[in-house]
Design a protein around this nucleic acid. Structure first.
Length: 394
DNA sequence: AAGAGCATCAACCGCATGCGT
DNA sequence: CACGCATGCGGTTGATGCTCT
């Protein structure tokens, strides 16, 4: 074959322009079932008359479940301005620090709003807003800036996913005198989540839900500890100081769970430590990203449903069930990943295993290259496997 | 009410980069 | 090392909706 770049896709016969709902559903269904190992082959296998690039873009910018829709908050805009000052037009880098936002979206916001706003501020430097912006590296930057500075090194680290701005793990459950500890943790790239001890992780969901948080940096160390201060008795389902490794196919040794303290007499503090070494297998972070991304997705779904309550056809009960579904799925998945309470019959678990089994096959995907839509309609399968998301279909 | 101008954002294009052979 | 390929990234475009006159 001659030198030079191959065309990104076959132009002939492929569709361009806006995506139809049917195409969206087909793409979502396919990715949900098989993932997106090969974008170039994906459209053919999914029965889409699109090039792989277009599919990838559509997924990343619009269909991905953890996309945060809606207007940018002032905090997000501040963050973009600051990061743009640091990084320039590195939209993907900026996007990586704004959970749920895409580089395309940020680029658009910058070009349509923020750039003009900054220009107008330059023209009128006496305005109040200008003061705020120009002091973006002073105290007004708040947690966002501290996060930026804190992870300055990871910005330059191309390989590592940087810490997220606003990754504030101060928990309502956290004991009061954690200030010094927290500073220590920050210095040693360690974050702390404290949760009421519950072996089935129900409360972990609730606590994480209270944090408007993002996955931590891979360069940091995550510690999830639990407090039983309000519990009549600790429930040490994990043996004291027990430590075991995840044996999932994707993460082998990086995940250690230690039931470090079980002060049954005092009933004061019992901890489940989830320690991930700095050099942890990146798969662990993928797993946590997925889990927390799922949480974020579910949260935004519920928020969206709440916002649309008056006008949309999703009733209160539907929304509640959707929320409960995601909550339970997330918890079950995490329990499985942590090997705390694997449930063989669980739907999500079986789906995950199906996908994992498919992906374990050499030359994944293991089917013959095209889907038989008469036997397997991905659209039907999608709605059988997952409740419709108001976020996606609004 | 109609049309011109503007704003927004999804999508495209082409180059850069990284990886496997 | 050279090459081919897949994917990522950033600039740009064009369709659509909104606002103003």
């Amino acid at each position: 074959m001659g030198r030079g770049r191959a065309p990104c896709c076959e132009k002939i016969g492929l569709k361009k322009g806006p995506w139809t709902p049917s195409e969206d559903m087909r793409l979502m269904a396919y990715i949900q079932k098989y993932g997106h190992g090969n974008w170039r082959a994906l459209p053919k296998q999914a029965g889409l008359l699109r090039c792989g690039k277009s599919c990838r873009l559509r997924w990343i910018n619009y269909l991905r479940p953890d996309i945060k829709r809606g207007n940018f908050t002032p905090e997000e805009e501040e963050t973009i301005i600051k990061l743009h000052g640091l990084l320039g037009n590195k939209w993907s880098k900026i996007a990586s620090r704004l959970p749920g936002r895409t580089d395309n979206e940020i680029k658009n916001v910058w070009n349509t709003h923020l750039k003009k706003r900054l220009l107008s501020k330059e023209a009128d430097p006496s305005s109040e807003e200008t003061k705020e912006t120009s002091s973006s590296f002073s105290s007004s930057a708040g947690s966002t800036l501290s996060s930026c500075n804190q992870s300055e090194g990871t910005i330059k680290d191309e390989g590592a996913a940087p810490a997220e701005p606003g990754f504030n793990l101060e928990s309502p459950h956290e004991v009061s005198n954690k200030t010094e500890d927290r500073m220590e943790f920050q210095d040693s790239s360690m974050e702390l989540i404290e949760i009421p001890f519950e072996p089935n992780l129900q409360d972990l969901w609730d606590v994480l839900e209270d944090h408007d948080q993002s996955p931590p940096s891979p360069s940091s160390e995550l510690v999830i500890s639990s407090s039983t201060a309000e519990q009549p008795k600790p429930k040490p389902s994990l043996s004291s100081s027990s430590s075991f490794s995840s044996t999932t196919s994707t993460s082998t040794s990086a995940l250690n769970i230690q039931h470090a303290q079980c002060k049954e007499e005092q009933g004061e503090q019992s901890e489940v430590m989830l320690e991930i070494p700095n050099e942890a297998n990146s798969d662990v972070w993928d797993m946590l990203d997925d889990d927390l991304g799922c949480l974020e997705s579910s949260k935004s779904t519920v928020l969206e449903a709440q916002q649309n309550e008056a006008t949309e056809g999703f009733g209160q009960e539907c929304k509640r069930q959707s929320h409960e579904y995601f909550k339970q799925s997330w918890i079950t998945d995490l329990e499985y990943e942590l090997q705390i309470s694997p449930q063989e019959g669980d739907h999500l678990l079986s789906v995950t295993k199906d996908i994992a089994a498919d992906q374990a096959e050499p030359g994944f995907p293991s089917y013959d290259g095209t889907l038989d839509f008469e036997l397997f309609d991905p659209i039907v399968a999608y709605f059988q496997n997952q409740p419709p998301s108001p976020t996606l279909f609004s």
